[in-house]
Design a protein around this nucleic acid. Structure first.
Lengths: 265, 265
DNA sequence: GCCCATCTTCAACATAAGTTATCGTGCGCT
DNA sequence: AGCGCACGATAACTTATGTTGAAGATGGGC
């Protein structure tokens, strides 16, 4: 169970899964097989999956951002979740007959498409990888719950700062942050559809966030000036990301293993 | 694969799962074993699971209603989901180290507590039952997504009528509706925490719903006067419940089987 | 049969957020 | 180089929903 060489370090899926459990070289190789499978590219805003489609493959975001969303009949749109590199779209989706929502590219995006057969083949010999994928799927669901709290209870200011916190921490967990900054390609229209606010109000509120000196955004890069203040402002509690504390890992029996060499900024 | 005799018809879990797939006698027996396992009773409002708990068992609501909820530090509360009889709490929860939210009794409730071992034992020989449980778990997640749309995009009136629609349809799928009426034990405070509205506004809006002649509530019984109108008022699209159309079922290969004898009001 | 809790309703008022409309800026196309 | 379009900022005004506080219902427990 030695650490394998470089590629995994730079692979956002493996980087993230290793926040949950230590992966064997085999697990990592399996994850890479999934990651490298049948890439498909989409332009920003293109639909990847449409409501009514029959689910045929599990998807994995290789590069770029995507989102889930849903329309009301009259055109109102709600974004239900964001996918960043390393995120899995729907582990078990084969079970449903029909998609009840859309998935679209937010930025230009590369997606791996994994058939049921390949998934079974890869996970059969690597139960720990399968468990890690389940974990990632539960974290997705937990993130959805947190978004519910966001929409139901938080003010506009809190919603937006919460979103910024979450994105930063998720990108960090995927190994894609740089100190206190990270990519941030969302337009204010997207933020409005995520937070259930109007674009005008997003603009107003975002300015307040900037004027409070909490963050700065330049050239699609988010720079956080004071992470603790940002967390406090949004009543942020990151337990829903289940990233564990101080890089402590679980072994296969569910006990705590020795701290891993997981890198934290 | 003959139909077994009565009990399953009156079992909300089996009733619901059979909207998805046809269960064999063995599958049904397995489901009943889960249903009958280690019952625990709770009084209304008691916590069943608390934030920070280590997940040890999967739970299944036998009788009564429960809910998931989450607090913000300052006490604001958001209800994240409702459990009615036959609902499974967390199929895969063993994978997480720590609960990130609470589960509480809404009414007096009886819950079956199923250990990982029993679950594995029961599902090992009944892959179709396992698949049906997965389906139910995906439907839970999809319902959460719809609640996100509710909070993000719908007006107070739409949120409340949507909730009424959903509850009725879910109870119906569990075999617990009676014509166009069903149990409805939610207080307006609960509805407020579900819909992200203030109690005062729930009261106001609920009156409007009644004055529009859409529903009536008496003695904790919801009577729907015009289901189509209620759906129209809430922009309801029930595809997220994945109940299938006209009772058509899937066989194990994912193809459509012959229509089942599923009862619809 | 009464009491105290909880639930519901109501009114008056406060405010966060939505709407509409205009304008500037920057960037990708042709 | 210049057109067109998506994006973001801003202002003026509207409205849905929140807040506070108080008064009726309702119902379970003793």
């Amino acid at each position: 169970m030695r650490r394998t060489s470089q590629p995994s370090i730079h692979n956002p899926l493996i980087h993230k899964l290793e926040r949950y459990t230590r992966l064997s070289a085999d697990d990592r190789a399996g994850a890479l097989r999934l990651f490298d499978e049948r890439h498909q590219r989409y332009r920003a805003k293109d639909d990847i999956v449409r409501e009514g489609d029959e689910p045929r493959v599990m998807r994995l975001v290789v590069e770029g951002w995507a989102c889930r969303y849903k329309y009301l009949e009259d055109g109102r749109r709600q974004v239900l979740g964001l996918f960043i590199p390393g995120d899995v779209c729907d582990l078990n989706v084969f079970i449903l007959r029909e998609m009840d929502h859309f998935i679209a590219a937010v930025t230009p995006v590369t997606v791996a498409q994994i058939s049921r057969e390949l998934l079974e083949e890869v996970t059969l010999g690597n139960p720990r990888l399968l468990q890690a994928l389940w974990w990632e799927s539960l974290v997705n669901t937990a993130t959805q719950r947190e978004w519910l709290v966001n929409l139901g209870q938080r003010t506009a200011f809190e919603r937006i700062t919460h979103l910024l916190c979450e994105i930063y921490l998720r990108l960090q967990a995927a190994g894609r942050s740089d100190g206190l900054s990270c990519e941030f390609p969302l337009t204010q229209t997207m933020i409005a559809d995520i937070t259930g606010l109007s674009t005008v109000h997003v603009s107003r509120t975002f300015q307040a966030v900037r004027e409070d000196g909490l963050v700065e955004i330049r050239d699609r890069i988010l720079v956080i000036h004071d992470l603790d203040a940002l967390k406090a402002a949004s009543l942020y509690n990151g337990n829903y990301l289940h990233l564990g504390h101080e890089g402590r890992h679980l072994d296969a029996n569910g006990g705590a293993g020795e701290p891993a060499a997981a890198e934290r900024e």
